[in-house]
Amino acid sequence: MIEAKHLSKQFGSKMAVDDIAFTVAKGEILGFLGPNGAGKSTTMRMLTGYLPPSQGTAVIGGCDLLDDPIGARRKIGYLPENAPVYPDMNVFDFLNFVAEIRGFTAAERKRRVPQTIEKCFLSKVTRQTVSTLSKGFKQRVCFAQSILHDPEYLILDEPTDGLDPNQKHEVRLMIREMSTQKAIILSTHILEEVESVCTRAIIIDDGRIVADDSPENLKASSPDHGAISLTVKYEDPGAPLASIQASEGVKSAVFLKSENGHLFFRAFPERGDRPIADKIVARLSQQHYPITSLFVEKGRLDEVFRRITGHCRPPNAPPDATR
């Protein structure tokens, strides 16, 4: 288990991280979200023992960072931001060096290093100097370094940064695959990544935790959660809008825009747990307004994110295609 106990970090007079506390158990993938400069990297740097905390401590699998820093680091795999790797070494030598530092014997290294190289799809560049590699490969080399010793705890600072969509997918698959025996913390600013990978998300703003919940629950707190978005093929928005508003269980409805003869509406339910889609459909088809599309909004993480971190979105902005 990773336990952050009231971690704080002060740079000069600025509190970069202010009393952050959470625990991550094995099997969990915790996503760290937050605007740039919110304190994500600083928190991770404290958890990995790079930055000494100004206050508080963290316990990694029973090893307190302040009392047994080396013991704690042995249990952690860490991918720092920007994936630093010695540029003058080749991939194999670099991983071999890390394995040596991690205390593996020559025989273990012989098995483990090629294994890790294969796992991270680096076989093609094994003997290539790191400085000649592309950003995506460098990222994977550093990622390989972090999982080389099969750590119980993985801390990944923007693990998919700089990767192409295929590589992102591979890395996410790998993270999910490993999560059964590990506790994983990853930071990202790709919200879609949180939804597809993380079992839990913590949103940090200004050095404080402002939300800590599963991605589903976070989405449910979005104002659009449970709302119905629908398009009607019709010219004049007034009449269909009136009939949507008159449907049973609808609290309010808005006309969003008109495009190629289609009218876009959004209806909000009176109560989140009572479905209104069927009522609206019944009423509109009764009055012969042809519905061309309809879906139930699940709420969107980026909306929640912006609302929580203080950048509110106007409520009647046009709807984007929902996943």
């Binding site: 740097r45 990995t48 023992g49 790079y50 952690i76 920007n82 630093p84 205390g103």
Partner: peptide, 14 residues
């Protein structure tokens, strides 16, 4: 400058 300081100091090295 390369950021490898962070790498080496978070490995189990004093």
């Amino acid at each position: 400058r390369l950021g490898t300081l962070e790498l080496i100091l978070t490995l189990p090295v004093t």
